[in-house]
């Protein structure tokens, strides 16, 4: 009965086959042909997936090759970190680079200023009422049509209680209510699952804002107390605005980006 590392043991005792290396080499050489045969034969979804994988592999391979090549090529030593001190007449080149950096910094700042009044998604697709609302027929003979059901995800405050059915014009179904959103901090480049506090503005219409409909581009207020942000005066910030960046009705979740200017 073979036990423990019996394969290694056998190889240690009796060695490998005499043509082992040769076979390995040949197998490796055959591999590309095999892969090619498979690639030529596959069709449909499998082919799509395979091609995607191959493409990624090829890109990676090219990158590594390039990296190797770059290492091999002898480049003229850059002046960025010279071994010896530079003569004074050459220092201004360095300065020029700095100037460039400066100008880009200025540009950046300008952009920032503009950003104060802009949001990541300045424009959104309009959503008609009959897309967002479904007419619910009421009445004994189902002949009345004044009641609407919101078919988009909504945020409903905690203290909300439904009106009596006779007076309730808009129904927001439980299945489409969201309490939390995945918010990305643009500077930290990290996302957090934060509780929604309120819907600040839905660009589609004030009615949607009132109803708390969450569509792409909606500005929501989120509870950022988890992140431990502070104002310049040192107070802890707990509410911050964020914009919804995805279509929650398609994705089943609310993603957004934190608006740093607010």
């Amino acid at each position: 009965m073979p036990q423990n590392e019996y394969i290694e043991e056998h190889q240690r005792r009796h060695g490998k086959r005499l043509d082992h290396e040769e076979r390995m080499r040949k197998r490796a050489a055959r591999e590309v042909h095999k892969a090619s045969a498979v690639a030529q034969k596959t069709i449909g979804l499998k082919a799509k997936m395979l091609n995607k994988k191959r493409r990624a592999e090829k890109i990676q391979m090219k990158k590594t090759l390039k990296a190797h090549e770059e290492r091999d090529v002898k480049k003229a030593t850059t002046s960025s970190d010279p071994d010896t001190a530079l003569p004074t007449y050459l220092l201004d080149r360095e300065g020029q680079k700095d100037a460039k950096a400066l100008s880009s910094a200025v540009k950046e700042r300008r952009k920032d200023k503009a950003a104060r009044y802009s949001v990541p998604l300045p424009q959104v697709r309009g959503i008609a009422e009959d897309e967002a609302f479904k007419v619910i027929k009421t009445g004994k003979r189902k002949q009345k049509g004044w009641k609407r059901m919101v078919t988009k995800p909504t945020f409903v405050g905690e203290s909300f209680t439904r009106k009596p059915p006779k007076l309730e014009r808009f129904v927001r179904p439980m299945g489409l209510r969201y309490k939390k959103a995945h918010i990305t901090h643009p500077e930290l480049k990290a996302s957090f699952n934060l509780p929604i506090v309120s819907v600040k503005k839905n660009p589609q219409s004030p009615l949607y804002t009132q109803l708390g409909v969450l569509t792409k581009g909606t500005i929501i207020e989120v509870n950022v107390s988890e992140l431990g942000m502070t104002t310049t005066t040192g107070k802890v910030v707990w509410g911050k605005y964020a914009q919804v960046t995805n279509n929650p009705e398609n994705d089943g979740c609310v993603n957004g980006v934190l608006l740093m200017s607010s």
Partner: peptide, 23 residues
């Protein structure tokens, strides 16, 4: 479970498909 519930509110083929994809 969540996504099956959401698909119940899907109002078009496109929406249902997106939800399935997300799930």
């Amino acid at each position: 479970k969540d996504y099956v519930r959401l698909i119940k509110f899907g109002d078009s083929l496109y929406r249902c498909k997106q939800l399935k994809r997300a799930a």
